[in-house]
Design a protein around this nucleic acid. Sequence first.
RNA 1: GGCCCCGUCGUCCAGCGGUUAGGACGCAGCCCUUUCAAGGCUGAGACCGGAGUUCGAUUCUCCGCGGGGCUACCA
Length: 503
Amino acid sequence: MTNPTSPVRVRYAPSPTGIPHIGNIRTALFCWVLAQQTKGEFIVRIEDTDRSRYDADAEKAIFESLDWLGLTWDEGPGKGGPVGPYVQSERQQTYIEAAHRLVESGHAYFDDTTPEQLHALRERQRAAKQPPRYDGRGRHRSTEEIEESRQAGLPITIRLKVPEFGSVSFNDAVRGKITFELKELDDFVILKSDEMPTYHLAHILDDKAMGITHVIRGDEWISSTPRHLLIHQALEIEPPEYVHVPLILGKDKSKLSKRHGATSALEYRDQGFLADAVFNFMCLLGWSPGDDTEVMTREEIVRRFSIDRINDSPATFDVEKLEWMNGVYIRNMSEDELIEHLLPFMERSEADGGLPDTVERPIDQVYLKKLIPLVHERLKLLSEGTETLDFFFADNVYPAAEDLPGRNMDMAMTETALEAALSLCNSVTSFEPEHLEAEYRALAEKIEMKPGQLFSPIRVATTGKAFAPPLFDTMAAIGQERCIERIENALSIVRSAASTSAE
RNA sequence: GGCCCCGUCGUCCAGCGGUUAGGACGCAGCCCUUUCAAGGCUGAGACCGGAGUUCGAUUCUCCGCGGGGCUACCA
């Protein structure tokens, strides 16, 4: 199907039973994009009809995830709108009324079968190698019998009467025509015994009341769509367009869930991923613009998105590619933007991955700004700012002796290198990077070492790390005084290692 | 088990009857280079299988096989 040209009304209708994972959030993303493209409305509705599984933290995480990704909603909780409330538990009465109306019109009936009886029935079917399904026994209960059960305190549900023969089919926007045989379906519950509706009933009533034009949801709903069609028929209303998007799978190829590690958008935020990168990346999971373009702005995605380019097959989430894309987004940022994003991570407590607690907060932004060019293109995650920059802020660094020698160097050679480096560091007249480089290259030649051999111990001595930004820029940023201190420090580490091994 | 969906490099995506099957991530090598990145170049790497249809199938159909989803008074 081609994209709608008139404004759509689409909704993201999560149920607050767990932290929403990215597979789930991605459908919200597609909804949002389509709403933007058609100048329609994106609606958020909370489906909290399962009171036993309700989780307030999950509900909070839903809104936080949407906020973080910039998926602003036009109508919904906290926002209001003309067809609210946007929380199902607050709409209970409409579901009850509709369910009763369906009973009156003969499309549904009261059922007093207990959970125990249902369980026993399934056991029997399983034993007989029959598919487990409700046998429709409630169809034959009289009004009096139901009333008796009600008086006796038995749980009463309302089930939809599913025709025994025939078939239903619908045209899915991404998969085409899908048909189901009615004989495969049993009479399913539409109103639970606590008078809360099931998803099947509730979402249809709400989507209708809210004027939803396109139901964009995960693949896992395809098999219950015939039920939804049946309810539409019984209610004599037109179903919306169905857009079933493929699932996102974990590494083991099963539907994404908690056991797949980081799966919530919020976890990615906390790990130092950028919302724009995650947005971009997730759009590409199950959709592509049709050419090789991958890095796209939101505007470009909104402009180019189309339902008929949504993929048929499920995608596996690949964090490594996300990390690469995050790096691209970081590199495309201005220095000031990067600082703004980096600060919250660096200013966290040391235990939470921030700079050492001994470093004064707030962080010296003027100094930080000087350092950014040295690390900008090296960062993949915002959280890496700390380890990439910590030695610039620390008073001193304490490398291990065995880390100080460069390739093909022994301790004696390392000591020689550091001694020469220290002496030059003391006497050098300018601490500008270019000047330092010239001086140190000359020094290498003088002491008959390869530049790399001389530079390696200095790098480790001044940064505490074998991998660091360009040496002379780094030294200049650290400053002459601290460089001298650090090289002296490294020298004593080497010497004490030498004397220890000599004994 | 039944029903439904899906099946192109390890992963994401392109291909929509005729291509040396393309790009990206990752991987390997080379270049650049004081390390690490970034960047450039090169390379390895895929049409699940079998029947059809067709002059010709990765592409269409069917059957297998494989994976996934659903099979609740959960969504």
